[in-house]
Amino acid sequence: MDESLKRAAREGNTVELYASIQRDGNVMRHIDQMEFVDTPLQIAAAQGCIDFAMETMILKPSFARKLNQEGFSPIHLAVENGHKELALHLMQNDKNLARLKGKRGETVMD
């Protein structure tokens, strides 16, 4: 993934998110094609960047179910890092995320 997009996700910079998309209209598709990857949504979830995370989820809903190389989805990362408000926002958009199995088959409810 492009470094500027990673930085934008860490900082919650939605302006740079759209600038990355303008530079490469397929940037999100390329990330989605990888099976296990840190997506911008996972990075934002780990940092607690609610606005960026929700904008990313709107643009690419499939990112909400992707697991990274460690076996964690965005909702797992949000909960693990104490960002409960972000986890609640994610579940408001997709209630089934609470049942999403990650590493060792665990859900955020376990």
Score class of each variant (00 low, 15 high):
residue 86 L to G: 00
residue 95 K to L: 08
residue 27 V to D: 02
residue 23 R to P: 00
residue 1 M to T: 12
residue 76 H to L: 10
residue 48 G to D: 04
residue 19 A to Y: 01
residue 9 A to G: 08
residue 109 M to Y: 07
residue 42 Q to L: 12
residue 100 L to M: 13
residue 47 Q to M: 15
residue 35 E to G: 03
residue 8 A to E: 00
residue 69 Q to D: 09
residue 110 D to W: 09
residue 7 R to K: 14
residue 81 N to V: 00
residue 99 R to I: 04
residue 75 I to E: 05
residue 48 G to H: 10
residue 86 L to D: 01
residue 40 P to H: 07
residue 106 E to D: 08
residue 82 G to D: 08
residue 95 K to Q: 14
residue 30 H to R: 14
residue 41 L to T: 04
residue 15 V to P: 00
residue 38 D to A: 11
residue 4 S to L: 04
residue 42 Q to M: 13
residue 86 L to S: 00
residue 94 D to I: 04
residue 12 G to V: 02
residue 101 K to F: 07
residue 110 D to I: 05
residue 92 Q to V: 09
residue 52 F to W: 07
residue 5 L to N: 00
residue 33 Q to N: 11
residue 81 N to F: 02
residue 46 A to C: 11
residue 93 N to T: 05
residue 2 D to M: 11
residue 84 K to G: 03
residue 109 M to G: 09
residue 59 L to A: 14
residue 38 D to H: 05
residue 98 A to K: 08
residue 32 D to A: 15
residue 51 D to S: 12
residue 60 K to M: 15
residue 52 F to E: 01
residue 29 R to K: 14
residue 45 A to G: 07
residue 24 D to I: 03
residue 64 A to T: 11
residue 31 I to H: 00
residue 79 V to M: 11
residue 47 Q to E: 15
residue 13 N to Y: 00
residue 105 G to I: 10
residue 71 G to E: 07
residue 28 M to T: 03
residue 80 E to D: 13
residue 37 V to I: 15
residue 70 E to H: 11
residue 32 D to W: 07
residue 35 E to A: 03
residue 64 A to R: 12
residue 40 P to A: 10
residue 27 V to S: 00
residue 10 R to W: 09
residue 60 K to D: 03
residue 101 K to A: 11
residue 92 Q to A: 13
residue 101 K to T: 09
residue 97 L to T: 08
residue 78 A to K: 01
residue 93 N to A: 08
residue 57 M to W: 09
